[in-house]
């Protein structure tokens, strides 16, 4: 169990340390480590966690770290109390690098923000973050989130419809994500 907690701490520490590019980029990192690498959660569970993190108060990074910390420990077969400890460790670990870095480099970065070297690093980082987000979306397009065309075409095509609806509402009409989640939840209840 100690190994699980240490891994949880280390994973979220790294995510906090390299989490450039905002909440969704962090989601992609959490997915990479927690789902693809360690298999602490299934993609379906992970998607649910993102939905809940998105629609509850607070930054999505903290919300998902707290939730993943809890679920990873409980999924491994430990009690709720250990799950609470897991969520504490994950949240603490994801904030810790920010805390140390901010205190250390707040002055440094203020001064050198427009230094060519710093700008070059970001010229590499910014496009990579776009790739990170695209990969996160692509990895989530799977049987667990969309159903299977072969076994249940109804669920599959409804899911595709919901995906298109949500994509257009967000991208073209800029409808609030929480509203989109609620509408699609209702649609799911009625149709699936």
């Amino acid at each position: 169990m100690i190994i699980l907690f240490l891994r949880l701490f280390w994973t979220f520490f790294l995510i906090g340390l390299f989490g450039f590019g905002g909440g969704y980029a962090m989601i992609s990192m959490i997915q990479g480590e927690v789902v693809s690498h360690y298999h602490w959660l299934t993609t379906g569970e992970f998607t649910d966690i993102v939905a809940i993190s998105q629609s509850t108060p607070g930054p999505i990074g903290i919300n998902s770290a707290t939730y993943v910390g809890y679920s990873s420990v409980v999924n491994a077969g430990y009690s709720h109390a250990w799950g609470v400890l897991g969520s504490f460790i994950a949240s603490f670990a994801v904030v810790l690098p920010s805390f140390v870095l901010m205190l250390l480099i707040s002055k440094f970065l203020m001064k050198y923000r427009h230094h060519p070297s710093v700008e070059h690093v970001f010229q590499g980082l910014r496009p990579a973050v776009v790739g990170l987000l695209a990969a996160a979306a692509l990895l989530l397009i799977n049987r667990e989130n969309f159903g299977s065309l072969h076994d249940c075409p109804w669920q599959f095509w409804i899911s595709v419809g919901i995906f298109c609806f949500a994509f257009v509402s967000q991208r073209v009409y800029h409808i609030n994500p929480i509203r989109i989640i609620i509408m699609c939840g209702v649609a799911g209840f009625l149709l699936l």
Binding site: Y24, I27, G44, T47, D48, V50, A51, Q54, L133, A134, A136, A137, L140, I141, E144, N145, F146, G147, Q155, I158, S159, V160, I162, F163, C164, F165, A166, F167, Q170, P177, I180, I181, C184, G185, V186, A187, G188, F189, L191, L192
Partner: peptide, 14 residues
């Protein structure tokens, strides 16, 4: 409900 929400979340990330 969550079966409906899951594809929406994927769209929100995309």
């Amino acid at each position: 409900i969550f079966r409906g929400i899951r594809p929406a979340v994927v769209a929100l990330i995309a």
